[in-house]
């Protein structure tokens, strides 16, 4: 801890100013989403709606079919999260508790390849998925998300502290590797699985470039792609666009607020321990 000299008032004032800057866009977004058409396009700007209305939201749901996009976002984020959790935790278990030739080398190769930006893979991946006939289907998003190096790394990092004796005892009792994985490994790593689930869910929900490339029909769009598409037609309708933004962000904020402790802990773990 650092005890800076400036008086507490000054310090807290500074923090309040930063808070105002970080929160104002969100507050205005929410407020404008409840305004009538044109009410967010005035000078001086309105900070609160004169007349509280949900017409923007009903327009999104009835005319613009945002329910479909929301459903796409939910289905994709949840499937990618569940599948990758399973694959990543299985691989992490293998990396931790099995002996095999070249294990450390393999792990180092995986780790160092994390520096490769995903954009590099996008062109061939697109062609592969096109050959497989899955462009513009859920599989276009799920397949590249089946497993990821960061997830394996994070679980392995967390599980390193589990004493081997736990596993050995089970082994002596005649448990199979599969039983050890389900009955001992998974329960112990549950906290990090929750954190990783948060990361993956949010990452998939927020992702933009890849769904923009691979989902081509409006009915297949995830929320961010649908919003980007809507923006080109409704650039003069801030009230409508703000309602759409609220709907896009809200699930993420709810999940985050409910589980921020796990999220922040995981973030620190993924970084500080190298």
């Amino acid at each position: 801890m650092i005890s800076l000299k400036p008086k507490p008032i000054l310090l807290n004032l500074l923090l309040i100013i930063i808070t105002v800057i970080t929160l104002t866009p969100f507050l205005w977004m929410v407020s404008a989403s409840f305004m009538l058409d044109g009410h967010a396009s005035t000078y001086p700007p309105r900070f609160l709606p004169d007349e509280f209305t949900i017409t923007q939201y009903s327009k999104l749901f009835t005319k613009l079919n945002i329910t479909t996009n929301m459903l796409n976002s939910f289905i994709l984020s949840i499937s990618v999260t569940l599948i990758s959790l399973l694959f990543n935790s299985m691989a992490a278990y293998a990396f931790l508790k099995f002996r095999f030739k070249g294990k450390e080398k393999l792990f180092t190769i995986l780790l160092s390849s994390m520096i490769i930006p995903s954009q590099v893979t996008m062109l061939p991946l697109f062609l592969m998925l096109k050959e497989m006939g899955v462009i513009n289907t859920y599989f276009a998003i799920i397949i590249p998300g089946l497993a990821n190096i960061f997830g394996i790394f994070l679980i392995r990092q967390y599980a390193q502290s589990i004493p081997d004796s736990l596993f050995e005892a089970a082994k002596i009792d005649g448990a199979t590797d599969f039983q050890i994985y389900t009955k001992i490994f998974v329960p112990i790593i549950k906290p990090i699985l929750v954190t990783l689930a948060l990361f993956t869910f949010m990452g998939t929900w927020n992702d933009f470039l890849w769904p923009l490339i691979t989902l081509t029909d409006e009915s297949m769009y995830t929320l961010p792609v649908a919003m980007s598409n809507l923006m080109s037609e409704h650039s003069k309708d801030p009230e409508l666009m703000m309602a759409g933004s609220v709907l896009t962000i809200l699930p993420i904020i709810i999940v985050f607020l409910a589980m921020q402790k796990q999220y922040i802990k995981g973030l620190m773990m993924g970084s500080v321990k190298e």
């Binding site: 866009p25 969100f26 927020n206 929320l223 962000i249 993420i252």
Partner: peptide
């Protein structure tokens, strides 16, 4: 944590 596309629209 918030969706980049959505906040870019807000901004």
């Amino acid at each position: 944590v918030t969706t980049l596309v959505a906040v870019a629209i807000v901004w």
